[in-house]
Each structure stands twice: as structure tokens, then as C-alpha cells.
């Protein structure tokens, strides 16, 4: 259909970014079961729309933005008590399951989940995705000042949470 959107491009971005996006989703979401769903959906959305976009170098930015948005939707729905992306991961092999289980026990993850959503998002984008504060502000639709504030408060809260006896 679209010229710029070849399977090669898909494969290429998959190899380059899929795993880090999985991490991004895992850090943003409060349940790991949805991580891969979210990343898959992000890939599908961005790539099925890719045809009309001439800026492949922005793919990662689009993917990240979509993961952030989908993760928020996930959280929102969970708050509403609705079941999101409810289909179980059908293909999750036991090896990955192990990794997900470990993740559930990770102290940092636990502490991150205790943060306010905005704080968590800022920290993850800033320090996991290595975005600049300006990029984070743009991605989250916040002012630069808010990003700084959420970031410093987030780190402080994280520090407290992780120093508490486990």
C-alpha cells in the first residue's frame, strides 16, 4: 500500500526498539501482563499508518508516544474497574513468564508503582527512555516546569519508598 512502509522497516524497528519499548511499557503499566499487548498495539498503529509519513527517524518517538498513551488508557480503565486488553498473552512462553514474575517482585518496580502516575511517567521517560526534559514535556503534554517538579518529587518519593524496609 504505502511506499515507505515495508516489512523491512517493520523488522528494522522491531529489532531496534521492540525490547526497549517492552521495558517502557513494563515501567509505565501497573501490570506486566499487558506490556506486550500495549507494545504490539503501538507497533501496529504506527506501522499501519506509516505509509504517509516520510520521517522514519521519528518512528521511535511515535512508538514511545503511543506506548505512553496506551499505558495511560490501561491505567484509566483499571481505575474504572474495567478489564483492559483482557485477552491473555497467548504466546507468552514460560521463559518470559519467569521474567515477568521476577519483575513483579522487583523492588524498584514496586516502588515505581507507588508513585503518582505523572511522576512515574516523567521518571521513566527521562531516565529509562533518556528523553530530555523538553521531550518529556512534549510527550506528556506538560510544561517544562511541571516536568521538573514531577521529576524531583518523583525521585524523592522513590527514594523514600526504596529506603523503607522491604
Amino acid at each position: 500500500m504505502a511506499a515507505g512502509t515495508t516489512v523491512d522497516h517493520l523488522t528494522e524497528t522491531y529489532r531496534a526498539h521492540y525490547r526497549s519499548l517492552l521495558g517502557l511499557a513494563a515501567l509505565l503499566l501497573d501490570d506486566t501482563a499487558s506490556c506486550e499487548d500495549v507494545v504490539q498495539e503501538a507497533f501496529i498503529r504506527v506501522h499501519s499508518a506509516r505509509g504517509r509519513v516520510r520521517e522514519p527517524e521519528k518512528t521511535l518517538a511515535y512508538l514511545r508516544q503511543t506506548v505512553v498513551n496506551l499505558s495511560r488508557s490501561a491505567l484509566r480503565r483499571r481505575i474504572l474497574g474495567l478489564k483492559l486488553l483482557s485477552k491473555p498473552m497467548p504466546d507468552m512462553a514460560s521463559a518470559e513468564e519467569g521474567a515477568y514474575e521476577q519483575l513483579e517482585r522487583d523492588q524498584l518496580i514496586t516502588a515505581m508503582r507507588g508513585l503518582q502516575r505523572r511522576q512515574r511517567e516523567v521518571l521513566v521517560l527521562r531516565y529509562f527512555a533518556d528523553m530530555t526534559e523538553a521531550q518529556v514535556a512534549e510527550t506528556l503534554g506538560l510544561s517544562l516546569g511541571s516536568v521538573k517538579a514531577y521529576g524531583s518529587r518523583g525521585i524523592a518519593a522513590l527514594r523514600v519508598a526504596m529506603e523503607a524496609p522491604a
Binding site: 516489512v7 517493520l10 523488522t11 522491531y14 521492540y18 525490547r19 517492552l22 521495558g23 513494563a26 515501567l27 506490556c35 506486550e36 504490539q40 507497533f43 501496529i44 506501522h47 498473552m89 504466546d91 507468552m92 512462553a93 521463559a95 518470559e96 521474567a99 515477568y100 521476577q102 519483575l103 522487583d106 524498584l108 518496580i109 521518571l123 521513566v124 531516565y127 529509562f128
Partner: peptide, 19 residues
């Protein structure tokens, strides 16, 4: 942060599904 998610691997057929 990196360490926490370092062991996450895509499911085996993730790319296939995307294709």
C-alpha cells in the same frame, strides 16, 4: 530502571504477529 526490565524478552512470535 534498565536493570529492572532487562530480562524482559519479546514473546517468541512477536515479530510474526506484527507482520
Amino acid at each position: 530502571l534498565r536493570g529492572a526490565v532487562d530480562e524482559l524478552e519479546p514473546s517468541a512470535d512477536a515479530l510474526e504477529q506484527l507482520r
